[in-house]
Design a binder for these strands. Structure first.
Length: 271
DNA sequence: ACTTCGACCTGTTGGC
DNA sequence: TGCCAACAGGTCGAAG
């Protein structure tokens, strides 16, 4: 479900209901997620206020005086604010009940997401330790991509989807950014010039910013934490449009598979 | 150090 | 209409 724009949209949606509010009670109905939900989670969160709601890549970070809870939404996860009394459905795995009467509800049919805890003073969490730069930060630039890609034979699309290279660029926005940059997803990362990486960096930033402004991409059921869908789907040029006409040259868009993921691109506009 | 691939799950879709 | 394989917004960790 979520790439960076959807995670960021979720963060902005839930933050007003969560930040500076005190957790009263946590209910874990399913602790078998990608990793087991730690048993000490209630002990670390109940009775404390959430001081900050931030994001690193696709991880949402909830900070209190004891440490930080990490939530990843995987492929099908979501977080939303519900009113007290709203009954949990089949895949509603965790409720964070706040003193203000609202509930932060974690849902994840496929259970690829995770909810973890990092105690303050224990250093950086291993899952965050080797992440690349944030794509919207200045340290994500053409020099970074150029240097990291030298002598890499992997194709440029899976390369920019590697979270050690840059975080937050998933299958939708990698495809879209490569289209905007006019770069074929099949080019080996190590053969792309720094000049072309400059175009790619700009495209990634533009696509992500625009998607965030649109409230993310709702393909099936993504909403922002308060039930509102995202409107970026109508801006997609290639993702989900295999066989349709390229919006620039009207040639039919091609679909291939790279690293077990589908890639759609225009063989005329992307070289 | 890099590359490839299986694994983790459930729900939806498309072809027959 | 029904069945079943293929596929879906992610990414870790093992094996080569």
């Amino acid at each position: 479900m979520p790439e960076l724009p959807e995670v960021e949209t979720t963060r902005r949606g839930i933050k007003p209901s969560v930040k500076d509010n005190r957790i009263h009670k946590i209910t874990v109905r399913q602790k078998k997620l990608r990793w087991l939900v730690p048993d000490n989670l209630p002990f670390m969160l109940e009775g404390y206020e959430i001081r900050q709601v931030s994001r690193r890549g696709k991880y949402l970070l909830f900070e209190n005086e004891m440490g930080t809870m990490l939530i990843h939404l995987g492929m099908s996860g979501s977080l939303r604010i519900v009113k007290q009394g709203e009954l949990p459905r089949k895949h509603d795995h965790i409720d964070f009940c706040f003193k203000n009467g609202l509930i932060l509800r974690f849902t994840d049919p496929r259970k690829f997401g995770c909810v973890l805890w990092q105690t303050k003073g224990q250093g950086i969490h291993p899952l965050l330790a080797n992440l690349g730069p944030e794509p919207l930060n200045p340290n994500f630039n053409s020099k970074h991509l150029f240097l990291r890609s030298r002598k890499r034979s992997v194709c440029v699309k899976p390369f920019i989807m590697d979270s050690k290279v840059v975080v937050g660029v998933g299958n939708i926005y990698a495809s879209e950014a490569l289209f905007l940059a006019g770069i074929s997803p099949k080019v080996p990362a190590g053969k792309v010039s720094q000049k072309r990486y400059q175009r790619l960096v700009s495209s990634i930033k533009i696509v992500l910013k625009k998607a965030i402004q649109s409230g993310g991409t709702t393909l099936r059921d993504f909403t922002d934490g308060n039930g509102n869908p995202g409107y970026f789907k109508q801006s997609l040029n290639v993702y989900g449009r295999a066989g349709k006409e390229c919006k620039l040259c009207r040639k039919h868009l091609i679909e291939i598979r790279q690293a077990q993921r589908s890639t759609v691109y225009c063989s005329a506009c992307q070289r």
